[in-house]
């Protein structure tokens, strides 16, 4: 190393000063290194507990060994108190568990979203169908007439599809007929006319059907003079499909009428109710 130094006598005064500074720095660094190595050696000695003088060769070996080794064995195992849980996140078991939980949650969320969407679509379809059943399908009690047997009546119910481009399939159920007795309703027998049965009918524009009923009740309530108070409950299932699944809605249409009994005296009714003309067989009322 010394051989590589320039001849200080051949340098200019400024360079000589600079060279002296460099030499002083190198010397200080060398002393520093010597002190450090000595301290390390002393530590090694203390650890090894080797008494006595060492040879020059041994000293060199120890100095070399005393140099820091980046991959040397740990001098002592200190217990970990910090960051133990950081390693946990490298565990394949934990990562697998977290992945499974994540997938399960994602699956659950996806199914939930799909179900919610399906329910929404279904609800919208149902609302649309209910709208059709209630608004497009017009149901009217057309008339009620006496039957020739002197005790029965024939009523005609008309259904009208306001949107003939979309046919409706209507399942007709038995029509319930009730007569008010006191404060309650008493059901009376009813049936379709001969040759007709309850079932599904296709309503493109108009469809009417007749029902026979026999209100043979003795103590019926007389809300207006000479007339029975009758409730007719027409129940039907409506769909836009001939073979519906869930796309079917139930429609209940009640009719309230005053019904003149068979054999009632028109004169008596007129006298009691101050009615002009012939008292009709039935007087329709608004729903109530």
């Amino acid at each position: 190393m010394i051989d590589e130094r320039p001849d200080i006598g051949a340098l200019s005064p400024d360079d000589q000063i600079a060279q002296i500074g460099t030499l002083r720095r190198d010397l200080a660094a060398a002393y520093s290194e010597i002190r450090l190595l000595k301290r390390r050696l002393e530590r090694q000695r203390a650890e090894a507990q080797e008494p006595g003088e060492a040879s020059e060769e041994t000293l060199r070996d120890r100095l070399r060994r005393a140099l820091p080794q980046r991959r040397s064995v740990a001098p002592a195992q200190a217990s970990m108190t910090l960051g133990r849980r950081l390693g946990l996140w490298s565990s394949p078991v934990l990562i697998g568990f977290v992945a499974v939980v994540f997938v399960a949650l994602a699956l659950d969320t996806g199914i939930g979203w799909y179900q919610a969407r399906s329910l929404k679509v279904e609800r919208q379809a149902r609302l649309q169908l209910e709208n059709v059943a209630l608004r497009s399908l017009y149901v009217e009690l057309k008339r009620i007439v006496y039957e020739a047997d002197g005790k029965s009546y024939r009523m005609t119910v008309v259904m009208q599809n306001n949107d003939p481009t979309v046919p409706l399939y209507v399942m007709l159920n038995p029509v319930g007929v009730y007569v008010q007795v006191g404060m309650s309703w008493q059901q009376v027998p009813s049936r379709p006319v001969d040759g007709v049965s309850w079932g599904v009918v296709k309503v493109v524009d108009d469809y009417s059907y007749d029902v026979l009923f026999a209100p043979q009740v003795s103590n019926w309530a007389e809300l207006i003079p000479g007339y029975m108070h009758v409730r007719i409950q027409d129940e039907m299932l409506v769909s836009q499909s001939a073979q519906p699944g869930n796309d079917v809605v139930e429609r209940r249409t009640p009719f309230y009428v005053y019904l003149k009994p068979h054999g009632a005296s028109d004169d008596d009714i007129k006298a009691r109710s101050k009615m002009s003309g012939v008292p009709p067989v039935f007087i329709p009322m608004p729903p109530h």
Binding site: R70, A74, A78, M80, G83, L86, G87
Partner: peptide
Amino acid sequence: QLAAQAYDKAAHLLDQ
């Protein structure tokens, strides 16, 4: 690095 590696390295440095 894992906690064990960090502690191992810390022990080396303190030893040095």
